[in-house]
Amino acid sequence: MLVFIIRRLNLFFFTMLLLTLLTFSLSFLFPGDPLVNLSGQINATPQQLEQLKLAYKSDQGIMQQYFAYLSHLAEGDLGLSMASQTQITSEIINLLPATIELSLIALMLAMFVGIPLGFIAAVNHRKTADNIILSVAMLGYSVPVFWLGLVAILVFSIQLGWFPSAGQLSLVYEIEHVTGIQFIDILLSDSVYKWQAFRDASAHIVLPACVVATAPATIFIRLARSSMLAVLETHYIKAARAKGLTFRQIIFRHAVRNSLLQIIRHIGLQFANLVTIAMITEVIFSWPGIGRWLIESIYQRDYTGIQSGLLVLSTFIFIVHIVTDFIYAALNPLAREHNHGTS
C-alpha cells in the first residue's frame, strides 16, 4: 500500500509540475505583458510594476520566474482578476464549491442511473431491453449538452413550471456563505425559512444535475454493460452456475460486486468529461460556479482568470482522479500489488 501511495503522490506531483508549467507558459502565450498576465494588475503604476517585477523576478532567468510563480501559488496568490480587479483566490473560493456540488451530485446521479441500466442491458444481452438501453445511451452520448439544457428549461421550467431555470437558490433567501456548498450552508444557517430554502435549493439542482449527468450516465451504461459481460464470462461465474445457484444469486452476490470494481476505476477518467459538461451547463443554468466564471473570463479577456481557472479546475479533476484510484485500490487488493508499469 505504501508503495502505491508513493507512486500516486509521485504522479500527482509530476502532474502538478506539468500543469503549473503549462499555466506559467500561458502568461507568455497570451497577448500582452507576461508580468501583467500573471499578476492581473492592469492599472498598475510604474512603482507598482517595479514591485511586481521584484515579486515575480521577471528580470531574472526563466527558471527563477517559474519558481517565483510557484511560490506565489503556494501562498495562495493567483493574482488579480483583470476584469474585476479582485483577488482571484477569493473569487475561486466562492465559486468552486458550487461546481463541486453540481458535479458530484451529477456524478452520483449518473452512476445510480447508468450502472443499473448497464447491468440490466448486460443481463439481457442482445435482447430487446439491451437494444433499447443501448440506443438511448447512444442518443444521450450524442446530444449536445447546451441544447439539452435549453430544451430541459423550455419543457420543465417554462411549459410545465416544475423546476426553476437558473441559479442555486431563489434570491429571496438570504443564506450566509460559509462552505459554499449550498445545502450545507442552508443547514448551517439560522434563518427561519431554512426548510423552505432547502426545498428550493433541491428544486434548483434537479435540472442542471440531470443535464450534466446525461452523457456520463450513458458512459456508465456502456462501462457497466461491458464489465458485467466480461464478468459473466469468467470461470467463477460458470462455477457458481454449475453449483446450481439461482440467476438472482449469481448476479447480485457475485457479478455485480466484481463488475462494480471495474467501473470505479473509470470514474476518475470520466470526471474530466463531466466537468467539461458542467462548465457549459453552468452557463445555461446561470449556476454560480467556476465554469461559468471561466467562460466569462474569456469574454472579458481576463487572462489571469483563464490561467487560474484552468489550473484550479484541472487540479480538482486530478484530485478526484487520484481519490478514485485510492478507493479502487482499497477495494481491490489485486490492484495494489501488480501496479508496476502502466496503470
Partner: peptide, 13 residues
C-alpha cells in the same frame, strides 16, 4: 486528462 473543451477554450483564448 484536461477536459478537451477546456483545453480548446484556452487555446482559443
Amino acid at each position: 486528462s484536461i477536459p478537451s473543451l477546456l483545453l480548446a477554450i484556452v487555446i482559443v483564448a
